[in-house]
Simulated assay, not measured.
Amino acid sequence: MTAPSTRRSGLRPTLRLRLTLLNGVLLVGAGAILLLLAWLLVRDALAPAADLRPGTEVVLDDGTRLDADQWEDQLLAAAKWQLLVKGLLALLAVSVVGVVGAYLVAGRALRPLHQVTTTARHLGETTLDQRIGYAGTDDEVAELANTFDAMLDRIAAAFESQKRFVANASHELRTPLAVMRTEIDVTLADDTADVAEFRRMGAVVRDASERANGLVDALLVLARTEAQSGGGLDRRVETDLAGGAARALSAMRREIERIKVRVKTDLADAPVVGDPGLLDRLAGNLVENAVRYNHLHGTIWVSTGSDGVHSRLVVRNTGFEVDQADVPGLFEPFRRGGRERTGARGSGLGLSIVRAVCGAHGGTVDVIAQAGGGLEVTVTLPAAGAPIAATTDGRA
């Protein structure tokens, strides 16, 4: 797909033409001023008869006798005429050369702008790899070309990320739908299926539908939170991260008991101002990840606190080992710490939502891979009463 051409026929007030005209006006103006000054200097300085006695005559080469004053007038008139004619010819020549030179120099200087225009006109889904690659003088035009190339890099990266996101979301949604379709088809094709078999099929379909519903809900939360990161929160209510952490632990109580995870807490007051629903989701995702990516008889540490300027929520867990170099990738949607999509529980959107919520509340999230396995995730938000500046930067 290419952008429609905006080129119009006829003479247009292009930047090149305007620069050329400006240069021409300046040259003609400067030349005219110099010619006028020369005219005035000749008029005032050329007065040879001023030092002669009145009535003095001047004898020319041809023997003609002229009064000194008359001879001076003729000399001055001839000098003015010569100055005018030769000055105008010189001004015309300088103006023509200057305008043509300015047109050529402006065209060469603005060539990268035409490259920017051509590249932008041909940009499309399949041509995002095109770049200007300006290699000229390090000036403002080079800065513009390099900025445009950097913008294309960001757009291409965002486009690829979006394509991966759509593909992964499609895969995640297709899996539970395929499970439901398969269970229904197999059960209906079995003529000997009894009530117990239909109940088993119903349980499988219910679990698959809950998984699909949870994924859709997570996608909606992520989209809503990322939208608020740029335009401000819809709700600003004073709440406490300690309460959200406690509610998250309570919601995961059965899973904690099932895998016999030890929980150690230090929940001091951590007041913040923001959307309580999103902040509860943040704490819930961190605790849920700490439980689901733990091992049998593992440990979870959850602590909150505030220094008056920032409020913090720290969730640390034991579990499988993660390389610190792989930590930034955990914030990408559908990444599960080395286990992507198949064979892992959850939607893979937990840390993506955490980063988006932190950005919407003007905070940051830091993740440190623990020696021996597990992660330590620290969420830092402005404390209640401190200024809140929305940002989309979540550090890893």
Rank of each mutant, 00 (worst) to 15 (best):
I300A: 01
H297K: 14
G305N: 00
L313P: 05
W301F: 05
V309L: 14
R339G: 08
R339E: 12
E321H: 05
D326M: 13
E321I: 10
G343W: 06
I300G: 04
L296E: 14
P333V: 06
G338V: 05
E332S: 10
V302T: 06
N317D: 15
G298S: 07
L279E: 02
L296V: 09
I300Q: 00
P328T: 02
F334K: 01
A290P: 07
A356G: 08
V315E: 08
T304Y: 08
G319V: 10
R335V: 08
L351Q: 06
D323K: 12
G350I: 06
H295N: 12
G298L: 10
R335T: 01
A360R: 06
L286I: 10
G346C: 14
S306F: 11
V302D: 05
R355N: 13
G359P: 08
G308P: 03
T304I: 08
D323T: 00
H297V: 13
R281E: 12
G363T: 12
I353K: 01
R335W: 05
L286M: 13
L351Y: 07
T304M: 08
V354H: 05
T318R: 00
R341A: 15
Q324I: 06
R316F: 12
G343P: 00
D280I: 12
G305R: 02
G359Q: 05
S352G: 09
L330I: 05
L351F: 15
S303L: 07
V309C: 04
R341S: 13
Y293L: 06
R345W: 11
R336L: 15
R312W: 03
L313H: 07
S347E: 03
G337M: 06
P328I: 10
D323I: 01
N294F: 06
A290S: 12
A360M: 13
G346A: 14
V322R: 10
G338T: 07
W301T: 10
D323C: 07
V354I: 11
F334G: 00
F334D: 02
L278T: 00
A283H: 01
V291A: 02
I300E: 07
V322I: 14
S311F: 10
G343D: 10
L349W: 06
A325C: 04
P328M: 08
G363R: 05
F331Q: 01
P328L: 04
G284W: 08
L278C: 09
G338H: 09
R336A: 15
R281M: 13
V287S: 05
E340Q: 13
R292T: 12
V322E: 03
G343M: 11
E288W: 13
E321M: 10
Q324G: 09
F331V: 14
L282F: 06
G350K: 03
G338A: 09
R339V: 15
R336N: 13
N285Y: 00
G363P: 09
L330T: 04
L296D: 11
R312S: 08
A360S: 15
A325H: 02
P333F: 09
Y293W: 13
P328H: 02
E332F: 09
T318M: 09
N294M: 03
D307C: 08
E332P: 06
L282M: 13
R292H: 11
C358A: 15
R355L: 12
L349D: 12
A290Y: 08
R339H: 12
G305E: 00
G329E: 09
W301D: 00
R292V: 12
V291H: 01
